[in-house]
Amino acid sequence: MDSLGALNVFVQAAETRSFTATGRQLGVSSSAVGKSVARLEERLGVRLFHRSTRAITLTPEGQMFLERCRRIFSEMEAAELELSQTRAHPAGILRVSLPLVGMLMMPTVSAFLEAWPEIELDLDFSDRLVDVIEEGYDAVIRTGEPSDSRLMTRRLGTFRFRLVGSPAYFGRHGTPETPAELVRHRCLHHRYPTTGKLEEWLVVDENGTRIEDLPRAAVSNAIEPLLHMAEQGRGIACLPDFAVRSLCRQNRLVSVLDDAVKNTGAFRILWPSSRHLSPKLRVFVDFMADTLFAERE
């Protein structure tokens, strides 16, 4: 058990790149962490970290040892999970990263918390590309196709985009009957926060020709301000259907030119392939897949 404790200290230090941060996580001093790592290095006969006054980094031997330690702890986790599968009520902390648009998933997330009250969700909202394994997430939800071979994935569902504006806006400016008429309207655009590029409106006319050079009344790197501006009659926005569904049902927004909009997307949940799907993660994945896109107009 002492050896496992030393391995745990090493793994924590490798992931935080800091003896001080590791000490805070484990409730010990930074010097105790350093001494534990030094004893481990002495026993192994290799240097595991390069040390400087500002940071620590893994040596090649340390990187190799880290992967082996992760497999050891993964096997221990798997053994524990096999014993816990019989538990009727999955419980514990589930750390999940969601995109910023994930704020609009909160009704589904809230319903999950009601269904599984013994699971504590630790949610992080960000559009940056997170390293699921290095940053210690149980899972991440993102759009697009997966590119990390270390991760398992499951599609939660697909969505399409809709052009929406308020009844008051269309009352003042008229409702566009053809895609070409959009060039005479106030358009509210979304800018990707990670790249700074505008999200394209894939709107085509009856001949399949794409409508380009649409006006810009406002640009935002988050969807919530676009929703607000559209509802307040400031223009037309191109937004995911799940984000506007409720407002359309309440007639606070109106959808136009549905057949002309070709933007689509998909959400996926990803988790480390080295880890077994724990009961708490399994019920979260199943719940999101069954519920997130269940309601369609």
Rank of each mutant, 00 (worst) to 15 (best):
R184V: 07
R186S: 10
H173D: 09
L151K: 04
L182A: 09
Y169F: 14
L226V: 02
R172D: 13
A222N: 12
F159Q: 06
N263C: 07
H173W: 13
M229S: 10
A218F: 15
A217R: 08
V244T: 09
V254C: 12
E145S: 01
G174N: 08
H190V: 05
A180G: 06
V183D: 01
H185D: 07
L239N: 00
E199R: 12
L226N: 00
P225G: 03
L239Q: 02
G174C: 08
P240K: 04
E181H: 03
V183N: 01
V203H: 06
G157C: 06
V183A: 10
D148I: 04
E212N: 07
L163G: 08
S255R: 11
E181P: 01
R160K: 15
I223T: 06
H228E: 15
R154Q: 07
E231C: 14
G208I: 00
G174L: 07
V219L: 13
L227P: 03
H228I: 14
D259E: 15
V256Q: 06
C238A: 11
V164I: 07
H185W: 07
H185F: 13
E212C: 03
P193K: 01
R172V: 05
P167W: 13
S166Y: 09
P240F: 01
R210M: 12
S147G: 12
R216V: 13
A260H: 05
D258L: 10
